[in-house]
Design a protein around this nucleic acid. Structure first.
Length: 506
RNA sequence: GCGUCCAUAGCUCAAUUGGCAGAGCAAAUGACUCUUAAUCAUUAGGUUCAAGGUUCGAUUCCUUGUGGACGCACCA
């Protein structure tokens, strides 16, 4: 049957050639988007057809995809969809002429792209409509788009019938998903706005956007397993980056005092609705600042982003109302654990922590040290409770090999993670710029690697050489863009904020 | 990587204890000069995800595989 549908379309294409109608012309001078016309001419009276017989009335030209068609013999209605919405067109045989009307009503299908020139009027049911004087085929669609019929309800919402509900279809053929689902397009428009508003925010504060290598001889800056690839000419192993951190700090050494990068990073790990193998990361670094400064900056940035995208600082997402209005709560990791579990980990040994985890039925690995155990306790028992924005500060030094020791507290670093809706949104610290200390931290990581921790970080001699030249005191932060977009757009799966999520081959 | 669930017409879904595989929409043909889930009439459309098994008989039960969704583990 599918073949039958495709065959019919191809026959129509052939018929169009025979009729002298070019199915794939080169250009159309589009004048308005549908939304422009609905706004601009919304004041037309119901059933106002005063312009219809007026040769001097303004002619409008729009272009888009046919999304519905209601033929009534010698007249027909259709809706065409462009980037900003839909508009109805009204076709009459006596205006368009036999040939064009014949083509329009017989050879055109849902999914075809057409250009329309005509006069606006409002139907007696009150819909702004273009009475077509010219209809031009701009692209014949050979593949059937299963577009569901729609009904606009009294409250303005659109109810769709027999809509495609198959997630697999929608992810694999996002182009078709986007045609059929304006709300999906909306999500991605918001995604785009989120990213551009971040750029705007950082640019305004004197940050320079930079690009650093994706293919790296050594991967670092995070704990994760990498993708490995090979360069033929150099005959060498290359890794896809797992973080932006180490190269951006090299630029701080080089004298770029405020830099940021928004780009894809890659982690060779499990996939679920929060994880895609490639995802977008923002990292920014600012010389002469510390992690306190970044907390303030982060509050301002998220407030700005949320307001730009949603027009408000309070949004409903994941079943909660979240308030992005600064300032956000601040709590040390130890305080947070104490608050939610009544356990004081500040003086506990590795042994004691292991016992506490066991009591709470938290799975542990023998390779885990004190810091990792505390982090695990936090992740299991505290994190999901953190709904409103909260900065969790002063993480254990063992799990923060690139962060500076806390200036006054032992065993922890100057770091914060921002949690919202139970999920980590930002991770920042006063960057470790003591090359001797940094070398020791790397060596400790190599020790973990020897203990069997595949994700422990690698010692990067070139990075050490860079900070041996002297890196100013610096604060740096990373924000996972996809998670932020999920939050801001109320999407439950990362696949719904990625145009083309990673899928197995068909 | 492990577990649970799902896969029937182009789309959304039915199909009684295991007994001739159906409907709406979309499509084709025809009627219809303000329709809007347009309407009316007619027609066509199926390797029931794949392979194997049980059975007189499998969309239905069993096994394996493929793809997806969800959960767990790992992680952001």
């Amino acid at each position: 049957m599918e073949e039958e549908l495709l065959r019919i379309r191809r026959e129509k294409l052939q018929k169009l050639w025979e009729m002298g109608i070019e199915p794939y012309p080169y250009k159309f001078d589009r004048q308005y988007f549908s939304s422009d016309l609905l706004e601009k001419f919304g004041t037309l009276g119901v059933n106002d057809d005063s312009q219809l017989n007026d040769p001097n009335a303004p002619r409008v030209k729009v272009a888009g995809r046919i999304m519905s068609q209601r033929s009534k013999g010698k007249t027909a209605f259709a809706h065409i969809q462009d980037m900003h919405g839909k508009i109805q067109i009204y076709a009459r045989k006596d205006i368009l002429g036999d040939l064009v009307y014949e083509a329009f009503s017989k050879q055109f299908d849902l999914g075809d792209v057409i250009g329309v020139k005509g006069v606006l009027f409002k139907t007696h049911t009150g819909e702004i409509t273009i009475k077509a004087e010219e209809i031009t085929l701009l692209s014949k669609s050979l593949r059937y788009i299963p577009v569901g019929k729609e009904k606009v309800m009294d409250d303005g919402t659109v109810q769709r019938f027999s809509d495609v509900d198959d997630k697999e279809f929608r992810y694999r053929q996002r182009y078709a998903d986007l045609i059929m689902h304006p709300e999906v397009r909306e999500t991605f428009v918001k995604r785009s706005k989120i990213i551009s508003s971040i750029r705007q925010f950082l640019d305004q504060r004197g940050y320079l956007e930079v690009e650093t290598p994706i293919l790296q001889p050594l991967y670092g800056g995070a704990s994760a397993r990498p993708f490995v690839t090979h360069h033929n000419t150099l005959d060498m192993k290359l890794y896809m980056r797992i973080a932006l951190e180490l190269y951006l700090k090299r630029l701080i050494v080089g004298g770029f005092d405020k830099v940021y990068e928004i780009s894809k990073i890659f982690r060779n790990e499990g996939m679920d609705r929060f994880h895609n193998p490639e995802f977008t990361m923002l990292e920014f670094y600012e010389a002469y600042s510390d992690f306190h400064d970044l907390m303030t900056l982060t509050e301002e940035m998220l407030g700005f982003v949320c307001h730009t995208v949603n027009g408000t600082l309070e949004i409903d997402s994941m079943g909660h109302r979240v308030n992005f209005k600064p300032p956000y709560a601040r709590l040390s990791m130890f305080e947070a654990i104490k608050q939610y579990t009544n356990i004081d980990v500040s003086e506990m040994s590795e042994e004691q922590l292991r016992d506490e985890c066991k009591k709470l039925h938290i799975h542990t690995e023998p390779a885990w040290d004190r810091g990792k155990l505390i982090d695990e306790l936090f992740s299991e028992k505290v994190q999901s409770h953190l709904i409103q924005p909260v900065f969790i500060t002063e993480q254990p030094i063992e799990i923060s090999p690139l962060a500076k020791k806390h200036r006054s507290k032992k065993g922890v670093v100057e770091r914060f993670e921002l949690f919202i809706l139970g999920s980590e949104v930002a991770n920042a610290f006063s960057e470790l710029n003591d090359p001797i200390d940094q070398r020791q931290r790397f060596e400790a990581q190599m020790g973990l690697r020897a203990r069997g921790d595949e994700e422990a970080q690698m010692l990067d001699e070139d990075f050490l050489r860079a900070i041996e030249y002297g890196m100013p005191p610096t604060a740096g932060e990373g924000i996972g863009i996809d998670r932020l977009v999920m939050m801001m757009t109320n999407q439950e799966s990362i696949r719904d904020v990625l145009f083309f999520p990673t899928m197995r081959p068909e």
